[in-house]
Design a protein around this nucleic acid. Structure first.
Lengths: 198, 198
DNA sequence: GTCTATATTGAGATAGAC
DNA sequence: GTCTATCTCAATATAGAC
């Protein structure tokens, strides 16, 4: 953990992640990564085989974190609606903890799908999708959720709204991840239309 | 319109848009664009100054189309809820008509913001945002929409869900843009929770 | 208008000194 | 472990023939 070599690796990955998120993997040069870390570009190759290896490591670390967090979230959920809220909250916490990885994942996943070197990323990503669909389909079967909208369509709408929120949500004191999770859950479950006083 | 030179330009832009959407602007090479059109890469420079010029033209054409369509949509809307539905429907129709431009816009806008050569794209994009916010704020003021969720937050959630749907929605006979617009409007206004029989 | 050929730059990656 | 220097290749863009 306090291994200095590992610390350097992490530092490089942190700088690379920020640049990959902002400009895209392809548009980021290894020289820029070196500048951000404060070393020459050649030195990066002592720690990593290639630029793509850095990207793979950032994404796999992110996906592993998602799977961990979802497992914890689902373990403590009572019903389908609560499980949905837990998935939303867990995802928002992850976007806050790993904002750059979130952005890279969102922006480049479709493209990376075409690249066989990123096959493991695809597989992990399919499992994440499964977690959402299980919750949504369970809720639909129980009658908690509407039956007239396809679970797949609903899943994609929530997923995009949740993950993309990392692009614009930068936690302030008065609008934290918990508050945003409440708002998103509330809108997706009960809608934005004003409701007659109950 | 039937000017053959202009037709060639359009053909090049269509191929470029598809590649830009799939791989990103930076990751797409002019050779690939040439291959897709069926000409040598050098020949592209008879029609365009640079690869970036192609990207700018694709995006500006897209933004002009949005502004046109939103103006028409809003002109025929009755109340705020209807206006919201019209904006959603208009956007979905645009994603269907210009799927590649939609994807490029979504994936690369944040990055292009940093590039002064794309300043006009930013300005047009700010106007589009204004159209959404006007409708949402009007609805909130009228009491049609909830007052406990920020218009800006709601705007971003709808916007991301709507535009991103172009990534996964490929109109089939039984699930057309109108149907998807209804589902999205319905979920965002009334929620996904099953409602007691009314 | 498109081709072939090529100038030129920029980027990923490597080698060897320190 | 990092630096300097550089190799190598790929990509944008240009020039001139047809």
């Amino acid at each position: 953990m306090t291994d200095p070599a590992a610390a350097r690796r992490d530092e490089i990955l942190a700088s690379a992640a920020e640049l990959f998120a902002r400009k895209g993997i392809k548009a980021t040069t290894v020289r820029e990564i070196g500048d951000a870390v404060g070393v020459q570009s050649g030195s990066l190759y002592y720690h990593f085989d290639s630029k793509d290896t850095m990207a793979r490591e950032i994404l796999m670390d992110f996906l592993a974190a998602i799977q961990d967090r979802y497992a914890m979230a689902l373990a403590q959920a009572s019903d389908a609606a609560d499980a949905l809220r837990q998935l939303i909250l867990a995802s928002l916490q992850l976007t806050r903890e790993k904002p750059h990885a979130t952005t890279i994942y969102q922006n480049e996943l479709a493209y990376l799908r075409e690249d066989p070197r990123f096959k493991e990323v695809q597989a992990a990503s399919a499992e994440v999708r499964r977690a959402w669909l299980d919750v949504i389909e369970r809720g639909a079967a129980e009658g908690t959720f509407r039956a007239d909208v396809s679970p797949k369509v609903f899943h994609r709408l929530v997923r995009d709204a949740v993950w993309l929120s990392g692009r614009w949500h930068h936690a302030e004191d008065d609008y934290c991840a918990e508050r945003l999770a409440d708002d998103i859950t509330s809108i997706f479950l009960h809608g934005f239309a004003a409701r007659p006083a109950s």
